[in-house]
């Protein structure tokens, strides 16, 4: 007896069942999660800013600590940004020519893995040069912030690969793909900010 047909017109248009305008659950959930993530990184960056400004003698990096590889990381930043662009292209082609779209997604995953591995190589070199978490707040903040980002990148790559494999097996997962994309864009966009604040 309570069929929606008896609803007044004003109540039919407003609520949740608004058809195409309706954001999928996973996309909305991911956006809300990203807000919490942005606050997490903002807190790390502001803590870093304060530590940097109150460094002993105003010297940053502290004397005796190795300099960060600015140029190599600039190239690496480019690799990560490229990965974001590839994923965006992959999403554009996915609806029309899924085969091409999947190829772009694979490219995004590979360049993402390249970014993380180059970061790992850089860490090993820096550790050899004596930049450790305990040596100074400079090193502590470097490993904390870049490590937190790397952790996010690894999780995002795993998720993206998982969605990619499922899509190659013929599953259609538009909402899940969209949510994973949002997470990867977050990882890509937050990195240049970190680069500008921590490396330069």
């Amino acid at each position: 007896m309570n069929s929606p047909a008896t609803l007044p017109e004003s109540r039919l248009t407003l609520p949740a069942q608004a058809g195409a305008k309706h954001l999928p659950n996973s996309v909305l959930g991911m956006i809300i999660f990203i807000i919490a993530e942005i606050m997490f990184f903002a807190a790390l960056m502001s803590a870093h800013t304060i530590a940097r400004s109150s460094a002993l003698g105003g010297l940053w990096p502290p004397p005796g600590q190795p300099r960060l590889p600015v140029e190599r990381t600039a190239i690496n930043t480019g690799v990560l940004l490229l990965s974001g662009v590839l994923l965006w292209l992959g999403n554009r082609y996915m609806s029309t020519t899924p085969k091409v779209g999947r190829r772009y997604v694979a490219g995004a995953i590979v360049s993402g893995i390249t970014f993380v591995s180059m970061q790992g190589v850089e860490w090993v070199a820096l550790l050899r040069e004596g930049l450790t978490q305990t040596a100074s707040t400079y090193g502590a903040f470097f490993y904390l912030i870049v490590g937190a980002h790397a952790l996010h990148a690894v999780v995002a790559i795993v998720a993206l690969t998982w969605v990619y494999v499922l899509m190659c097996l013929g599953r259609r997962l538009p909402a899940m793909f969209a949510a994973t994309q949002i997470f990867w864009y977050f990882v890509v966009i937050v990195w240049p900010v970190i680069y500008l604040r921590v490396y330069l």
């Binding site: 942005i38 606050m39 903002a42 807190a43 502001s46 800013t49 304060i50 400004s53 109150s54």
Partner: peptide
Amino acid sequence: TAGIYLGSTLVMSAL
């Protein structure tokens, strides 16, 4: 440092 504290307080509160 006090200025930077104030600044990051404002940014973090508004964000």
